[in-house]
Nucleic acid binder design. Structure first.
Ligand SMILES: [Mn+2]
Ligand SMILES: [Mn+2]
Ligand SMILES: [Zn+2]
Ligand SMILES: [Zn+2]
Lengths: 139, 139
DNA sequence: TACTTATTGAAATTGATTTTCATTATCAAT
DNA sequence: ATTGATAATGAAAATCAATTTCAATAAGTA
């Protein structure tokens, strides 16, 4: 997976740096969405000289490259999660933040109908479920 | 409607002030979600001496009283909209911000099923549609 | 190895929100 | 109506995230 990400960076003419690799490592290994400051703290554990600005810039790039997705939660709206191919929605743990993509719901038609009834031209939809993940239910 | 809101403030032991009335007026007459600074600017047109802090504080109160709801949009996550009774979802214009509550979708069962399949204990869901309102389609 | 240029990070800047606190205004009790 | 307790206000300072600037550094190509 990391190879794919770094390849995509290279493909866009961007350089491979130790900082970028470290940031990508953190994001790829996280099962929850992280904001830039969280990534900064986590990455600095192995790269103490890293600057915050680099984290902001790198995460913005990764989003533009379609590798990261912005996720809004009660605990913050600047969180980013690795994006999965295709159209999916998220199920997020309110306790630990664990995020799971799920498929199987196809509401697109129902959404169109609602929009039509209100004379809106539907452009997008935002659907997210939240609850307790298996582990957090036991605690 | 305004009477209801002011009554609720009083009921909670809060005082009726000119500032609060002005802020409530703006929020009740807006058909789109507004953030504190927008409310500040709008309210100052009639109350130039109003302070920003008062707007922040008042809007926070109104949210706690269940009169306002926080609404997340691409253009910002600090926007508040007057809350409608009952369980509804929103349809929001991406151009002018016009917000419409709609009913008629009942996906609760489908959501529960998805959660179960992933061994999550469902607590909440978030659904929002976006598109162009009738007026913005013509422009 | 040398060179071009993207990248980096410290520091300054911006902008939103919160905190502090002295002053003012509301409202209930006289 | 007057008074008094105290809730509310707003200017100013403080905080915090995020962005901009810029000189130094490092990546990748020739
Ligand atoms: Mn969908
Ligand atoms: Mn619902
Ligand atoms: Zn969890
Ligand atoms: Zn519109």
């Amino acid at each position: 997976m990391k190879e794919t990400w770094m390849a995509k960076l290279k493909e866009k003419g961007m350089r491979i740096t130790a900082q970028r690799e470290a940031i990508v490592d953190i994001l790829l290994n996280s099962e929850k969405a992280l904001d830039p400051l969280e990534v900064y703290d986590l990455t600095r554990q192995s790269h103490p000289s890293l600057g915050v600005v680099t984290v902001y810039r790198t995460m913005e790039c990764l989003e533009h490259l379609g590798l990261l997705q912005k996720v809004h939660q009660a605990c913050g709206c600047n969180k980013f999660l690795k994006l999965k191919e295709g159209h999916h929605h998220l199920l997020i743990c309110t306790n630990c933040g664990k995020a799971v993509y799920f498929e199987g719901l196809n509401f697109e038609n129902a959404f169109s109908e609602i929009a039509e009834n209100n004379n809106f031209l539907l452009q997008d939809h935002w659907l997210q479920l939240s609850g307790l993940c298996p582990r957090c239910q036991k605690i």
